[in-house]
Design a protein around this nucleic acid. Structure first.
Lengths: 337, 337
DNA sequence: TTGTATGCGTTATCAA
DNA sequence: TTGATAACGCATACAA
């Protein structure tokens, strides 16, 4: 097997022309049954499978889905990408995953165009972008027939794209309702600013909290959204004259930092909530109440759009919002005020 | 930009033939300076970059490195893959990452050949396999010029490959020396069986512990290596007549389970160590002493082999062992016995 | 040094 | 229905 068999080898073995053999794999009905069976048999004996990339080169589309993961290290992203691959494979559509490479530029993050161009050169039938990219311009002038679906981020820069993301309002409503039930009335929110998702989430929090008649304080972590920045922000919040009884965080990482700060202050009275319901939040030592984004449903809806032309056409330009759930754990089982 | 410029367009604009233009990009010295500059200028104006896959199709090798990540969800793997990409890019070598898809077969895990075949069809110059795959046979009959480097796993099935992995003996020696320093003399080890790395690590533990004159108990987690299995195994160990004063774990996940079990028993006297020094181990609430695999060094050595033919030839068939480090945290700051 | 012709593995367009 | 031929974007042996 040091060399793969080609359509040429199959044709020779079956005693037909290259073109006839090729047709067997593209539109089997256009060839007589006798020849079709001979070709198929020859292909099976040789272990022939078409070379997808030679096909791509010749055709306008390779018939596969290109998946671009914004950040390999975000388990949410890889989970969705993985689920999408399986769903598409079940439909007989194969997919190819590429990681976006994001580098530091003079002003902010910059999206490296090279790996994306390489994926585009493979001529995907449609594109699935998982997670937020600093820049969507590489996808602005795609050949019109390529469908683009963006998950977990907004694609307002791409008029022809469809976005599938978590319903932030519903999420923050779950959080605030839960805290209201527990008797909280003064909340703080800790999270980053600047990025679209960040603004959405914070605004959703403010709306939800006020709907539940709770007062709010917003503490920014700048552009950071990790454990140390959460810890720092928590210190500032705890120093406030009217300290809150619960702290709602942009994501789990920030919440871990907040938990650390509370631990340093020996303060077990303040409730903390996260967002993403990561593996870590489930650990008994952490036990963080957190929003679970419905990744399975996000993947399912995305794949539907990716593979179904009509479904995509009907949804183009819209945001599809997926309802999240709240996983409640002991981080919100505190002394109520 | 709805259509990418081809070498044809560049040649037309520069007023030379296709081949001349092509040569400018493959062996620039073989063309006169005047024409070279005209071609380069035309390419720049058009924004031309070569289509790597068309090049691959024509040549025996596309000159890029194919990276296969065994499991997207293992942060260690993605970290190494990412580092390798950057190191290779700095050398002007581009790389393409594909995730292996591992499915459940009748007896055990099965490696899906399709995505791998697709990557192979792209004709990589060399292959970088990150992490353990259930089956290396798809790589057994590669065209001879393709170099294969395997990181974090063993490649004894592939005679022509080179393995780069952590020195398990050194790792377990660090752990046991640390525990010996703290006065421990009875150790338990909790981890899975069956896989090569698992056996290596356990055997290394036994050797290191006996070198430090400590007694050992081995508790298996079967094939599992996650938090619940660690928790269960810890319960069994704690029920032992002569309970150990320290528990050494196969990895961090298992160790988190052990920590949970200890927490349930209100037992702060038993030391726990992990392996991988994940992001989670660093969280203040977890503070797990753990072995840090030197991913940067693993990536560096691997890339050296990947890009340097001579270095690879010298190392073929061998295992390159990378020294790990021990990150000590409060999980081993217990009451000493 | 430069251009012409051919092929990589496939699909598409024609005649036959 | 089938098969010869061209083309996708590129590289290379060969001729000029």
């Amino acid at each position: 097997m040091t060399k793969r068999p080609t359509i040429h080898d199959v044709a020779a073995r079956a005693g037909v022309s290259k073109s006839t053999a090729a047709v067997v794999f593209s539109s089997p009905d256009d060839v007589s049954q006798a020849r079709r069976e001979r070709v198929l048999a020859a292909a099976a004996e040789l272990g022939y499978t078409p070379n997808a990339w030679a096909r791509s080169l010749r055709s306008t589309s390779g018939g596969f889905v290109g998946i671009i993961v914004a950040d390999f290290h975000n388990p949410l992203f890889t989970e969705i990408a993985d689920a999408a691959r399986q769903l598409l494979a079940a439909q007989g559509i194969f997919s190819f995953v590429a990681s976006a490479s994001i580098v530091d530029g003079p002003d902010g993050k910059i999206l490296d165009r090279e790996p994306i161009q390489h994926l585009l050169d493979l001529k995907p039938q449609s594109l699935f972008i998982v997670g937020g990219l600093p820049d969507l311009s590489p996808f602005a002038n795609l050949p019109g027939h390529i469908r683009v679906v963006v998950a977990l981020s907004s694609a307002h820069e791409l008029p022809g794209a469809v976005t599938v993301r978590t319903d932030e309002s519903a999420a923050m409503d779950l959080v605030c309702a839960h805290l209201a039930d527990l008797g909280h009335s003064r909340l703080a929110y800790i999270g980053p600013v600047g990025r679209r998702v960040a603004e959405d989430r914070r605004d959703a929090f403010v709306r939800a909290a006020s709907a539940h008649r709770m007062t709010t304080t917003i503490e920014s972590t700048g552009t950071a959204m990790d454990e140390p920045s959460g810890s720092d922000a928590a210190e500032r919040v705890l120093a406030l004259a009217e300290a809150p009884s619960a702290i709602v965080c942009y994501n789990d990482n920030v919440a871990f930092g907040v938990q650390n700060a509370l631990e340093r202050h020996q303060d077990r009275s303040v409730a903390v909530t996260g967002y993403d319901n990561t593996y870590i939040a489930r650990l008994e030592r952490i036990a963080l109440t957190s929003i679970e984004q419905n990744t399975a449903e996000i993947a399912r809806r995305s794949c539907d759009l990716l593979s179904n032309e009509d479904a995509f056409a009907a949804a183009v330009g819209t945001d599809i919002l997926i309802a999240p759930e709240l996983a409640t754990r002991s981080s919100t089982e505190t002394v109520t005020v």
